[in-house]
């Protein structure tokens, strides 16, 4: 069997652990190394699985990896992606793709010029309810899309996420992009205008942790997304991905993590929701790997990442102005 050689650059974003586990489970993948400036962060994996470790990502890029998975702090995505592209590696980059439109365009260009593919990590497309909603819309079951109300609420992730120098933004940047990507994907329309509320309301020190991002599309459709890190410690789960999709002939309600058991354990000190549905990360990683092995186009592109991140960036601008801003 032809194997895809994959390396991972940085485990700063915790999703790297899940992507790593998914890659490990695929027989057609050979993990050729982990690069992380923090040896401590990945020590357990490296020792348990005997994976080659590099303190400097350039050492990993100098090797024979076909592709790399980048889960660094947001501000480093551009540098790492461009370096990987120049080394001839395909890239799966954690969202948000970048922290400015210019750097995301540079990332996309670098990959194109070096003949490698760039995929943005939008695993929510692989939530079964989301995929089925997309299919139902495509079949015309609710007519034309009129509006979407979405939420991607979560808890304050802390650490570098709340340090603007490393994240480039708070909850609005972190949590606009997932549902924005889903809406872009389902509507296939272009965002023309953005209006947003961004504030600090839930205890984050100096970064936005509350957001309501509104968009208008060139088709006349519109949407709002709650991006807030508003789930308290006492909440039964980390957060949510929900969408109410309003069509001319019906409504589709998506609650991405509704497949859950309710767990009441004295050990937890609170009731919890325990998700048992399909693993979206695993499905996304499998698709990424298969596309590269088949020489096919990756299912989610760098342009997709740009189109959702630019809405978050416009949201910050709108929030400062207190008025809608148009998206050129």
């Amino acid at each position: 069997m032809k194997k895809l050689k994959v390396g991972l650059i940085s485990f700063a974003h915790g999703h790297a652990f899940s992507y790593y586990a998914s890659l490990r489970s695929l027989p057609e993948v050979e993990i050729v190394g982990i690069a992380d400036e923090s040896a401590e962060r990945v020590r357990q994996l490296v020792e348990r699985d005997g994976v080659p470790y590099f303190g400097d990502y350039r050492q990993l890029l100098a090797g024979d990896a076909d592709a790399v998975v980048i889960c660094a702090e947001n501000v480093r995505h551009a540098e790492l992606t461009i370096a990987a592209a120049q080394a001839g590696k395909h890239v799966l980059c954690e969202k948000p793709l970048g922290i400015s439109v210019a750097e995301m365009e540079a990332m996309i260009a670098a990959c194109r010029e070096n003949g490698v593919q760039l995929m943005t990590a939008f695993p929510c497309r692989y939530l079964p309810a989301v995929a089925e909603a997309k299919a139902a819309i495509a079949r015309g079951e609710i007519g034309e899309i009129v509006a979407v109300k979405g939420t991607n609420r979560g808890s304050n992730p802390g650490g570098w996420f709340v340090d603007r120098e490393l994240s480039g933004g708070g909850a609005v940047l972190d949590h606009t992009v997932h549902v924005m990507d889903l809406i872009n994907w389902m509507l296939g329309a272009k965002v023309s205008e953005v209006y947003a509320y961004a504030a600090t309301r839930f205890g984050a020190a100096e970064i936005d942790d509350a957001g309501l991002v509104h968009v208008k599309f060139d088709t006349g459709a519109f949407a709002v997304i709650d991006t807030s890190w508003s789930r308290p410690r006492s909440f039964p789960t980390w957060g949510d991905v929900t969408m109410e999709i309003i069509g001319t002939d019906g409504v589709i309600s998506v609650d991405g993590f509704a497949q859950k058991n309710e767990v009441y354990s004295d050990g937890d000190g609170k009731g919890t929701w325990s998700y048992w549905g399909d693993d979206m990360d695993e499905l996304m990683i499998r698709d990424f790997v298969r596309a590269l092995l088949d020489g096919a186009a990756v299912p989610v592109t760098g342009e997709d990442g740009l189109r959702s991140a630019e809405v978050a960036l416009a949201a910050y601008e709108s929030s400062k102005l207190g008025q809608p801003v148009s998206l050129a």
Binding site: F202, S230, R231, P232, F235
Partner: peptide
Amino acid sequence: AEFAGSEGV
């Protein structure tokens, strides 16, 4: 309705 505050929902 949902009200999210600094210490709960």
